[in-house]
Design a protein around this nucleic acid. Structure first.
Lengths: 239, 239
DNA sequence: CGACATATTGATCGACTTCAAGTGTAGTGG
DNA sequence: CCACTACACTTGAAGTCGATCAATATGTCG
């Protein structure tokens, strides 16, 4: 059931069978969400965290002037709000971008892990640290990359993250975002997203039909994106 | 010695005297850095983490084209790279913006804490989660705020963070950045930083002489910044 | 089919960049 | 005390990237 999280954590370190059992047993129930439904709403006080088992989700914040910024995209195996177990009140919302299936884990269960399973605790901590590293990489992309480079960078990142949970097919993967949502992710307008997409298409770097992206030239794409996967920490070592 | 960290953590939860003792004893030695010296260099493999006891520091990344983006500013009491104890190899550098005094903590000592002090572990974890929340807020500022609003937002944030470690004097605090460094922080050019600063000055929102910023009108400033301090989690509760 | 979201295109505008020059200030050495 | 250097700050002018406004396709789903 919880395989995708195990799959993800095993990219970072070895898990004992006892640890896998604990991960399995921490789930209290499942929840389903429709597309565009809030999984967690901004400012709410939480007693449970949500692990994404199917679908795509996003963390976002709404400004006073109504503009929105997406601060993270989540795929299968991601704990969309593991941090809520210590923050208690979330500073952001989490929205389902597609229909989503979520495993619910109570904060009490997470706390119990911190009290009895130090290594597993470190791995969960690590997963929030990789969130943080991803935020940093996005900051660099926002501050210092062109819109084109920024989008190319995002495609490289999503490809590797989806590959880690076996949701790629060759150089193709699902990108179920509208151009408006992508604009909120990249911090640019919808119109400009469209132009950037066209440019990547005419440069024969990617295709994007329906919700399937195919990378046509990985080497040139990572060059355009100035992409370095270090921040995803996809190497297994003792933590 | 380690008071500023204790001061900071006590804004989030109650610390037992045993926990304070453990924090005190985890330090293996002190280090001093000159301004502009790297505390940690990008890509290096680490066995120790660095806690800032005096001065200002910044996390940064350098792109292939030579441009720089600062992804975090650090003040007294901040663990500039606590995350390196699990990431091992850092995806970014940390530079001293002023002369800095740093307490060095070995990763072995941090690991020992995770094995024997669950509550303290959670508080250290929390401090990395607040880093992450700050990254998210910066992402919003980069993506959806004007340069003016972004800078105003940064001033609000630094004011509250410095107040938490008792480094403000009324509405004044030290901001020891050059306009070029501030540009690398906000993701804009030095020239534009200058114009934004002028605007905040002529609007009588702040003064900035030498390295001292004074907020002249907090209410109007948070309005310009659209500032909501939730993400700093400066409220004490059981974690 | 009608209705509504999403994608695309064109035209104009504005925020911010880049390039270039000039000013202020502190330090250094003669 | 003054020349000289270095660096940060400031200002102006021109250029560009991306925003905004406004239509017009193109789905797609009741």
């Amino acid at each position: 059931m919880i395989n995708p999280l195990v799959l993800k954590l095993e990219h970072h370190d070895v898990l004992s069978s006892e640890e896998k059992r604990v991960l399995e047993s921490m789930i209290s129930r499942m929840r389903e969400f429709r597309a565009d439904e809030d999984i967690v709403s901004q400012g709410s006080r939480l007693t449970e965290s949500n692990l994404l088992l199917e679908g795509f989700a996003a963390r976002y914040k709404i400004l006073m002037n109504g503009r929105r910024q997406i601060t993270a995209l989540h795929v299968i195996g991601d704990f969309v709000d593991l941090h809520s177990h210590l923050l208690k009140k979330l500073d952001h919302g989490v929205i389902a971008l597609t229909p989503c299936q979520v495993a619910v884990v109570s904060h009490d269960n997470i706390r119990r892990i911190t009290e009895s399973h130090p290594h597993l605790t470190r791995l969960l901590w690590l997963s929030t640290l990789i969130d943080s590293a991803t935020h940093r990489e996005w900051l660099v992309a926002m501050g210092r990359r062109s819109a084109l480079g920024h989008f190319a960078h995002l495609i490289c990142e999503l490809f590797l993250r989806l590959q880690a949970v076996q949701r790629t097919d060759g150089y193709s993967f699902q990108l179920p975002l509208t151009q408006a949502e992508l604009g909120d992710t990249l911090g640019i307008s919808t119109v400009h997203v469209n132009r950037v997409v066209q440019e990547l298409r005419t440069d024969r770097l990617i295709t994007w039909q329906g919700d399937v992206v195919t990378i046509l030239d990985w080497n040139r794409l990572i060059q355009v994106a100035d992409f370095d996967p270090t921040y995803l920490y996809l190497e297994r070592e003792p933590r």
